[in-house]
């Protein structure tokens, strides 16, 4: 159908330009991942071809010792992830709810503290963690899960944002007043009114925390603990193929988590139930 007189105005680009640019960018970003995947399934010493022999090696009892450290690292990381999420639920969430409902002026202070780890380089924190952990390990022995306290700090911005956006989307004060006017006590209000309304924010927050923990390398490396990432780095020398496979799998796992968070947020937004988005907007990566 011929359209006459329509002119593009404002910021939106033309469809053709946008498609071309986005496709080129997409390919550029997929290329290193493709190279990594191709490498993971290449026969040893060759630069092309496809083989599953590296995956079989994983189950080979003779070579099992090579992967011990990685398996242990994965276990440690999973435990650390669990403990970190618990720490967020115990330390961060109650403080945020209390500030939102009763001490609204404290909200800014909490936001400031939670976003502070962005401007303190992780390596600086890591240097400071060394003496702190020397004291702690004297009490507990050198166990990995205690790293959760340190990693929890660098996860703070990621744990904070989704809950904050969720809180901004539901009018918590009114909800609280409604609940209380209907006769609910403080505890009942939080448990059966506030928390259910924050479910999505808390879930996103927990998932993002898990993804931060699984990708964390700096602190584990400085404190010489064995986690998923340090295990991968070590395995790189012994078996780069399997290390690449695990790297890809971890990426895919985190990608799926984030697509799910994004889709859940979008569906909600489309239904106009509330306007919060779980995006990690303006947060830099933890590295």
């Amino acid at each position: 159908m011929s359209r006459r007189g329509s002119a593009r105005v404002g910021a939106a680009p033309g469809r053709a330009t946008a498609t071309v640019v986005l496709v080129i960018a997409g390919l550029a970003f997929l290329y290193p991942l493709y190279a990594l995947a191709a490498f993971a399934f290449q026969p040893v010493g060759q630069h092309s071809g496809f083989t599953l022999q590296h995956l079989k090696a994983l189950t080979d009892p003779v070579r099992a010792y090579q992967y011990d450290q990685l398996w242990e690292g994965i276990q440690n990381s999973l435990v650390i992830a669990l403990v970190t999420v618990l720490l967020m639920l115990v330390f961060l969430l109650p403080a945020m709810i209390l500030a939102e409902l009763r001490y609204r002026r404290v909200r800014q202070a909490i936001e400031f503290v939670c976003l502070l780890p962005i401007s303190i380089p992780t390596v600086v924190l890591a240097v400071g963690f060394i003496p702190v952990y020397q004291v702690m390990w004297q009490a507990t022995g050198s166990v990995a899960w205690i790293l959760a306290f340190a990693i929890g700090i660098i996860s703070l911005p990621y744990a904070f944002r989704p809950i904050q956006s969720n809180m901004a989307g539901v009018d918590m004060v009114t909800l609280q007043e409604a609940a209380r006017s209907l006769g609910a006590g403080w505890f009942q209000t939080v448990w059966s009114v506030i928390l259910p309304n924050l479910r999505r924010g808390i879930l996103s927050s927990a998932l993002l925390t898990v993804s931060v923990v699984l990708g964390e390398y700096t602190i584990a490396s400085f404190l010489q603990q064995n986690t998923f990432q340090t295990g991968l780095a070590l395995l790189e020398h012994a078996d780069p193929y399997v290390a690449s496979t695990f790297a890809l799998a971890a990426l895919l796992f985190v990608f799926i988590i984030l697509v799910l968070i994004g889709a859940a947020g979008t569906i909600r937004r489309n239904r106009k139930v509330s306007t919060w988005s779980p995006s990690t907007a303006t947060l830099p990566p933890v590295r």
């Binding site: 290193p32 780095a233 971890a250 990426l251 990690t280 990566p285």
Partner: peptide
Amino acid sequence: VLAQFGGVMLAFAFIA
């Protein structure tokens, strides 16, 4: 994901 994809995994991809 990619903004978080620093470190070891990113290094692998670029070595490849």
